[in-house]
Design a protein around this nucleic acid. Structure first.
Lengths: 234, 234, 234, 234
DNA sequence: AATGAATGAGCGTTCATTCAT
DNA sequence: GATGAATGAACGCTCATTCAT
């Protein structure tokens, strides 16, 4: 198991993840005074995303929030409910970031490129989210399954993609038979996997996938990869 | 948190994952008499892949192996060392399955199609492996990092891909500028992600990605997706 | 341990105990507007008598009083002091009920019968008191020991008994050598025990001692039992 | 709340309860080597009977048994199951003591006197049992209710009483219309209550009911009290 | 190699109590 | 006096691990 000291020293380092473009990070709410509830939520995100659900310790969360174990129960009721709230927050953050892409529909190729690179950039900038999603998948999606509004987030996101595709088709630059849902999965997969499996794959391929160069190369690669798929062949 | 009974009743069901093609499953070693060590290892794989490292309980492993906690320490020394052995086994299994693909080099398109579909099929048939890899990535690859032979497994795998690509290029059906390493990552991503995030993405898209139809559609989709990338345009 | 829900649902039912004679119940103070202090005290009696001292929760008391934890400390200082006040109230209530017996001294046999049946009837109607006394005895009477006026309540009660006995002796119906203190203990024992040990004794004897019939039979039985002791043999 | 030190210092004193006759104490199993399970059970009896169910602390039990918290769960599963076992033991002990009374049926008056005095003597010698029974009644008999064999203990006990009564009737010294069940309750009440409410009643009456003299007086008093009831009037 | 008891740290949670408006 | 957030100890229980046959 993890030695305590090891875990301890890791504690502060995760906060500064690799970034590609700051614009893609969720807006920092850098208000000087934060409520205890907020502190706990932020600390919980940190700790859950560092250790997963089972590995996370209530005490660690409360201390990271400079608060008390009991206040976690006061505000959230249980470790699990706290986790769910962290997870929901993460979803909301991704969703908001997607809405903030500021796409120029007049240029569907550039817009699509932005969409393609978004997941990679987002997860590179916010790798904690991957642990949260991982944890949720490890638990067979039991929380999200009970969360009735989950798929309401997907609609607008896929609509955005579809809007771009349709504009491209109208302009005659994109193919006509494009399955937007599948395309969306493929785009997400190519960005997410690169980050989620960075450790095992780096070891496996004997290179550091998280070097800035590698990330940029991969961003360009998957951009071309997906665009090739969509563009009408010259 | 998981109720005990819930966890208990899940215990036996996970063993029969959705299968696409039995040929892709690792060979069952159905010998009637197994050593205690083997029993523990198999039980550990089950339990680790159901609950992750932190969620796994030594007692659950020992009971699933019809053995004793203390024998786990006798044979493996610690929970962590047991996990590492399970992880290594999983890697070896994937490797062996990749070696067993029986590709016909004379038909590089068909061979490549097989390679593309392999990760999806493998992870659909053996989803436990995903939890193991997830867990290892959650722990920042600390075990695989110390495992010097890890990347020795990647060489032959990428060689196989390269062989197929080169044959296709020789036959004039594949493009010339193909980065095999990146292609390999892309192929793995498209298969792995679909399975690893099946719960959150199913909820998100409001469809059951694990239905047999969906899986086959996805297999066909990514096959075309990647082939399109590689084939010389008509 | 008690499930929360179980405890919760019991919460309102206890208020309506088995009654023998309404005249024996403490006078309900059914005023529409009660002070917070009073509310807390009443809620505390309810909760303490349902769960004992250690089982009672401050939060449960404050919620039952539609008030706040902190007001309990504001008004009473501590859980223990609140308990003491509840206990004192209970003693006062018993005392007052004893004073309200309205005995007809001219008929000492009837009067004695009333006295004999009083404890049984009172505890059947107010079984919570038993839990309070039980709790106090469990704590070795530490509160009542410090309560200097406690035995001032016994004097009048035993005086009443003695008055009746003397009148009976004067009329020649009661024996001459009667120890009123011991008689009082015996009377109380025969009524109190029947209620205090109703659960264990019901199971032990495999009958429901709290059925109305059983209670009436017991009332008659102990009445005769004690009277036999006191009456001059025919 | 109880100060720790107060509770602590009480810890060892309870072990030496007031005794009337040693012959009535449960046989001490003074074997030099006791199993951990036995140690825990004995310690649990001590602690439960000192503090009640809610007041008892697992840690206190484990320490009193010179063992570990976890072993309590290893052997008994939960605090509640441990309590049930303690309670069952207490019942069994009483039962065995009742069987050991060695009554001389030829002398029914002496035999009945022994029976009458038994509860008082037993509870004086083993006052812990009262706390256990109190606690069980506080919890509305939830454990004993589920204990199907509980009332099997009452049969033989009442049979003994009935045997003595019948012999007395045959000899013409006892009245004919005697309800043995009610008589048994009365006998128990007169002994039990004196001990169970010793603290509150001592304060109330301003005498120490537990002085040896008082106890002997009470034993004689209730003996006469009940015998008077049963004997044919001279 | 098998069996089960022992060891001790630590975890999620709850509690009585106090503080600050 | 009302409201609710803060404080910190402790509780029941579980865990990985080791010991002794």
């Amino acid at each position: 198991m993890l030695k305590k000291d090891q875990a301890e020293e890791v504690l502060e380092t995760v906060d500064a993840p690799l970034e590609m473009e700051t614009s893609i990070k969720r807006k920092p709410r850098g208000r000087p005074r934060r409520s205890t509830r907020e502190n706990i939520l932020r600390a919980a995100k940190k700790v859950f995303s560092r250790s997963g659900y089972d590995g996370a310790r209530i005490e660690k969360i409360s201390k990271a929030a400079r608060s008390y174990d009991s206040l976690i129960y006061y505000y959230f009721g249980s470790k699990e409910k706290l986790f769910v709230e962290v997870l929901e927050d993460a979803y909301r953050d991704i969703y908001e970031a997607e809405q903030d892409l500021n796409l120029n529909l007049q240029d569907p190729v550039a817009a699509l490129r932005k969409i393609i690179e978004f997941p990679l950039r987002y997860y590179v900038a916010n790798p904690e989210v991957i642990v949260l999603l991982s944890t949720e998948n490890l638990q067979k999606g039991k929380h999200i399954a009970k969360w009735p509004t989950a798929h309401q987030y997907s609609r607008p996101v896929i609509d955005i993609l579809q809007g771009v595709i349709q504009e491209g088709q109208a302009q005659g630059v994109f193919k006509n038979d494009i399955d937007c849902k599948k395309l969306y999965i493929a785009i997400t997969a190519l960005g997410y996997f690169y980050v989620s499996n960075r450790y095992t794959f780096s070891a496996f391929l004997d290179t550091d996938l998280m070097q800035e160069d590698s990330i940029h190369e991969w961003a360009a690669y998957i951009s071309d990869f997906v665009l090739n798929q969509v563009l009408v062949s010259a």
